[in-house]
Amino acid sequence: MRRAERRAGADPAARPSAQEPRPGPERTPARAGDRDLRAAGAPPAGSLAPDWAPRAFPVRVLLEDTGEMFRVTDCRRDMTVRELKEELDLLAGIPSNLQRLQYLDQGILMDDTTLKFHDVVPGGVISLCVWHYDGWTELVMAAVEGDPAKLCGLGVVEGSYFRTANSRHFEEGQWRRWIAQRAFVALYVSSHRGHLEAVQYLLEKGSVLRAGDENSSRPRANCLGKTPMGRTPLHVAAAMGRLDCITLLLSYGASTSIKDARGESPLSLARRLDRKHSERSMFLFHWKAKMAGRDLSQLLRDTEFQKAKSGLSIKKLKT
């Protein structure tokens, strides 16, 4: 009998170890899930919406038409699809109203639903497509490539012969607004990707409506236009560190102080994302414009300038 007990004691599988954690309130599902995620890197079998998912987790977003992959790091289970689109407005450079998201075989994800509702797991891949209606997909893809020749034929300039099944029925004012919106979207995407030649073309040739006049236009894409999130082309150029595009946009009247729906200006956005060169470039442009006619020594003695400089953490501004 004692021999049998000794044999059982020598076999680790025969009885539980005294060190094995017992189930109880101290082992919360979230804490256990974090440990499982680190160890295995994948959810347990048969669980698509794990309760053990960490409070913030990454998902990957694949832009189907180009094969580009974007990583959204701070997702939550209660995050809505609309909130994810708002992140991608900046991260992928695609205005949120043109985005169509899908996960696995669930079809189009509705804006008010959550990631939990769609069983999105940490590290999962969400597909991003651009809405095909009215030729938006072709326009965005041409802007992603940065090809002015393609953009020219896709309805971004006044006098363009480009029409879609929908735009053929537009009255003159509607058509002008539509062309101006297409020029802005192309400028936004091109600025995000850093295609200087395309940005230059759109700023010089792209159609934009005059303020307060829906029936007139001037030959310039609107660098002050905004996405549904209130972001301008300078916002995305600053976020991505596109210095050449930043300089060009500023020279055409882009503003460093316009705030998006989250209260971020291009300048504060560059600071948050640690785009030091972008921040410095916009900072100096802003102060040179503000202090026009004053020499550098006067500028450096300005108390407001010194306060702003200290906030930027720039040690030397003289070049």
Rank of each mutant, 00 (worst) to 15 (best):
A14N: 09
E26R: 01
P29H: 02
G33C: 11
A40W: 10
P43Y: 01
P50G: 04
W52S: 15
R55I: 14
V61A: 05
L62G: 02
D65P: 02
F70Y: 15
R71H: 05
C75G: 03
L84H: 01
K85C: 02
L88C: 05
I94L: 14
L98G: 04
Q106M: 08
D112P: 00
K116C: 13
I126Q: 00
Y133N: 13
G135T: 09
V140L: 06
A143N: 04
E145K: 03
A149R: 07
V157F: 06
V157K: 04
Y161S: 15
R163Q: 14
H169Y: 07
Q181Y: 05
Q181A: 15
F184T: 09
G194Q: 06
L196G: 00
V199M: 10
D213G: 00
P219T: 12
R220T: 10
N222C: 15
P228H: 01
L234I: 10
L234F: 00
A238R: 03
A238F: 01
A239D: 03
C245P: 03
T247V: 08
L248W: 02
L249F: 01
L250I: 10
Y252S: 14
S257V: 10
R272F: 04
L273S: 08
S278V: 08
S281C: 15
S297L: 07
E304S: 14
K318S: 11
